[in-house]
């Protein structure tokens, strides 16, 4: 099946999943309280993240055809997202500064004078359009990689910490081995092997990224399994699996949330580094920054590419960190403030 069909399916599943989670969470006082608290304290950050998610969704729902492509015969058979359609035909044949009325560097005259709020890039693409396109890539990298790395770290960390002995030795050996390789080189090697697709990059980032969190989980589990409520649960006849699910895992949730947030922003940033090395994901902000790097030496200076991409990146990461911080304050009962 074509990529765009999958993308639509994923969007549908995500929306359904979110609906389900909201439906379930509405009945749980803890989550409604958490969210109302978050909303009260970090409204702006939540809205910013919401905006990024919306843009990413607009960029994910795609279908073929339905547009007048003019002479362009290739685009006729390519799927285009809602976002693509909104910015259709905004291609220029020259550089232009934000809100420019005239062309830059002697290209052809502008087709849409003054319409490029953030200007255009070297090959005449609208910078606003590119910056918005980057949101989907960033969320995909941050989200997918965390979704791969965190369960991996939890699985290995909890089994090592809880069961100890042989299992712990094996897990620790794997962790030490991974940690002893230079991260960037390992990343590059993995991407060379796996290919340069978005999923492959996520995979590579996950494989190099789970070790740190795994170590934290292992240590925390060591601590938790000695606590009296775990002995009490055992004395009540709870199975090992039950203890892990009901007593260990919930007490790691605040770590999961903090890690998810830090990892998310860290991953979006490391993708930028990968792009700088030329092995990033197509259409990411990192790639935009990489391409705009050389433009900084032009005269007059071309600043709008790098600033747009940088601000888009900065905005997302700042908002995510704010929200993560607030979530930690609310969800960790050890820092629980009296809300009632």
């Amino acid at each position: 099946m074509a990529d765009w069909v999958w993308s639509n399916v994923v969007v549908a599943l995500l929306l359904m999943g979110t609906g389900g989670v909201v439906f379930y969470a509405r009945r749980s006082r803890m989550w409604t309280e958490t969210f109302s608290d978050l909303w009260r304290r970090r409204r702006f950050a939540v809205l910013v993240i919401g905006f990024y998610v919306l843009v990413a969704l607009l960029d994910s729902v795609a279908w073929v055809g339905g547009m007048d492509q003019g002479e362009d015969t290739v685009a006729r058979y390519e799927a285009q997202s809602i976002l693509d359609r909104l910015f259709a035909g905004s291609q220029e044949r020259s550089y232009s500064a934000p809100f420019a009325d005239v062309e830059f560097y002697g290209g052809a005259p502008l087709t849409h004078p003054g319409a490029h709020i953030l200007g255009t890039d070297l090959i005449g693409r609208d910078v606003l359009y590119l910056s918005l396109k980057g949101a989907r890539v960033a969320l995909l990298i941050g989200g997918l990689t965390s979704l791969l790395a965190i369960p991996l770290a939890l699985l290995f960390g909890i089994s090592a910490g809880y069961f100890g002995g042989r299992i712990d030795d094996v897990v620790f050996f794997v962790m030490s081995t991974l940690a002893s390789m230079p991260g960037l080189l390992l990343l590059i090697a993995l991407i060379m092997v796996l290919g340069k697709s978005t999923v492959a990059v996520c995979f590579a980032l996950a494989i190099t990224g789970w070790v740190g969190f795994c170590r934290v989980v292992r240590g925390e589990t060591f601590k938790l399994r000695e606590l009296e409520y775990v002995s009490a649960a055992r004395a009540l006849g709870v199975s090992e699996f039950g203890i892990i699910v009901r007593h260990i895992l919930p007490n790691l949730m605040h770590l999961v949330i903090i890690t998810f947030v830090l990892m998310f922003s860290g991953l979006v940033l490391s993708e930028a580094i990968l792009s700088w090395l030329g092995i990033g994901v197509d259409g990411s902000w990192g790639q935009m920054i990489d391409q705009a790097r050389n433009e900084l030496s032009r005269d007059p200076i071309v600043w709008w590419n790098i600033v747009s991409a940088g601000l888009a990146l900065f905005g997302l990461i700042l908002a995510v960190n704010f929200v993560g911080d607030a979530l930690r304050d609310t969800l960790d009962p050890r820092t629980l403030r009296e809300t009632e």
């Binding site: 002995s231 004395a235 007593h247 007490n251």
Partner: peptide, 18 residues
Amino acid sequence: RGHRMAMIFQEPMTSLNP
């Protein structure tokens, strides 16, 4: 355990999952 023999511990402070 828990069904025929149950146990209560010394430290009520840490015997409940927080």
